[in-house]
Design a protein around this nucleic acid. Structure first.
Length: 427
RNA sequence: GUGGUAGUAGCUCAAUUGGCAGAGCAUCGGGUUGUGGUCCCGACGGUUGUGGGUUCAAGUCCCAUCUACCACCCCA
């Protein structure tokens, strides 16, 4: 008989183990508490959506749609996709459930897993987790600024120093005009472009702006800048956003290379970089977002201005680990009950239940074990008190109370157990 | 999708030129029939990621493959 093959997680997927949970809980709680304090409501959308939702919103020419989606046919023959991000789903829910009839703006947050079929790397997995927060129904620059402010507040609360990289890509109209100019700037220089940029000039010219190839960077410096080609409306909006950021005293940097790959963005776009990350090169941006006034219309709703952002939880957690941020493992129990013999085991169950009902944090062991072993366990749990219930105690209806720090122990009649525990633990 | 580095016990890692697969931690047992933290002794644990090849002999060399990590690409 050959040993069966052991299974392992498939590529790009990983387990979050109990020892990492305190850190995860810390991060998620911080995000969600901040969102609640800022007036956001929790929403939960499905992991699986109709494929068209993402194709239309994220954009057919984006890498996400072209090669990164987990898409398959369900048994009814429909094409469905594991969500690669939240924004499209949340906007779909907003439209589907008539949330436009709620007082505006509607502020929603969600935490959960997203899926992209990419080559795994540091800070990049095929299943990853995001915290996302969206403001739907406000066109005001104040909404953009508050969105940025929330992302900053969360990361600051977590103890990370970050700088917001901000840019504006304008309305669709002004962007289209700019892209035209950009193309005509690059057209005569085509033969100097790198392979990737040659592809990008057709599919997604904006992305040429953050090519890292030396020649392309040199050309980019002379290329028309989107900031200079914004229409009046976009320009005013952007100026106002920056005024708010100044007023909120948020550390930001204007970065004309932030263009965002997703089709639905318009006007304000931003990324959040850790302060000590040179160009966010190592783990990528901790988060990103912007305004997406056109999305509702794309998804068949009324035109609805909206903006929001998402944080990559794995990246935030990696950063916290890099900074050696300590979250202490919570002390789980105050009392351990050691039992010896079958009869004691049966009675132990009831005693433990009784104490749990009184809100004592108590545990005992389910393996056959010596008293020595059980005391070792008690010690590892770090409990203050170990109760010992052996055959002798069972027969005379008593129990031993052992105080772990000084090692002293005392036999007390069972009916007096609670009073004695209260004296020692709740005095 | 492209290029590079790596994979040995649950974890961290040894193994000389190709020559008997090892240690610490953890787990379990004993020293102590019912007493923890320190200590001592012992046991368990491996098809060296997987599959082929070269060789008298492969953890070590070659090929393929999987996975992780790094750099592109892209993004949170």
């Amino acid at each position: 008989m050959s040993k069966k093959r052991a299974f392992q997680t498939i590529r790009g997927m990983r387990d979050v183990l109990p020892q990492d949970m305190p850190l995860w809980k810390f991060v998620i709680d911080t995000c969600e508490n901040a969102a609640c304090a800022y007036g956001y409501s929790r929403i939960e959308t499905p992991l699986l959506e109709e494929s068209g939702l993402f194709v239309r919103s994220v954009g057919e020419d984006t890498d996400i749609v072209k090669k990164e989606m987990f898409t398959f046919q369900d048994h009814g023959g429909d094409s469905v996709t594991m969500r690669p991000e939240f924004t499209a789903s949340i906007m779909r829910a907003y439209i589907e459930h008539g949330m436009m009839n709620q007082p505006k703006p509607v502020k929603l947050f969600e935490t959960g897993a997203c899926f992209r079929y990419e080559r795994p790397q540091s800070g990049r997995f095929r299943q990853f987790h995001q915290f996302t927060a969206e403001i739907i129904g406000s066109q005001e620059a104040a909404a953009d600024a508050e969105s940025i402010g929330l992302s900053y507040a969360v990361l600051k609360e977590l103890g990370l120093e970050v700088v917001i990289q901000v840019n504006s890509i304008g309305t669709f109209e002004s962007r289209r005009a700019y892209v035209k100019q950009l193309k005509s700037f690059y057209q005569p220089k085509m033969r100097y472009l790198c392979k990737d940029c040659l592809a990008r000039i057709k599919s997604n010219p904006l992305r040429m702006l953050d090519c890292k190839k030396k020649k392309c960077v040199e050309m980019m410096l002379e290329a028309p800048q989107i900031i200079d080609h914004l229409d009046e409306e976009s320009k005013n909006h952007f100026v106002k956003v920056l005024e708010y950021l100044d007023a909120f005293d948020l550390p930001y940097a204007l970065n004309p290379q932030i263009v965002r790959g997703l089709d639905y963005y318009s006007k304000t776009v931003f990324e959040i970089w850790a302060k000590d990350d040179e160009g966010a090169a190592r783990t990528g941006a901790l988060g990103g977002g912007g305004r997406y006034d056109g999305l509702a219309d794309i998804l068949g709703g009324c035109e609805t201005p909206a903006c929001g952002f998402a944080l990559g939880l794995e990246r935030v957690i990696a950063k916290l680990k890099e900074k050696n941020v300590q979250t202490q493992e919570e002390q789980k129990f105050d009392i351990f009950l050691a039992h010896l013999g079958e009869e004691a085991c049966k009675r132990a169950f009831l005693i433990v239940e009784g104490l749990r009902a009184k809100k004592y944090r108590i545990t005992y062991n389910l393996c056959k074990a010596s008293l020595k072993h059980q005391l070792e366990l008690a010690n590892k749990f770090g409990v203050r008190i170990t109760l010992i219930l052996g055959e002798k105690e069972v027969s005379d209806h008593s129990i031993l109370i052992k105080e772990m720090d000084i090692g002293a122990q005392e036999s007390v009649p069972l009916p007096k157990l609670e009073r004695e525990l209260e004296k020692r633990l709740r005095a």
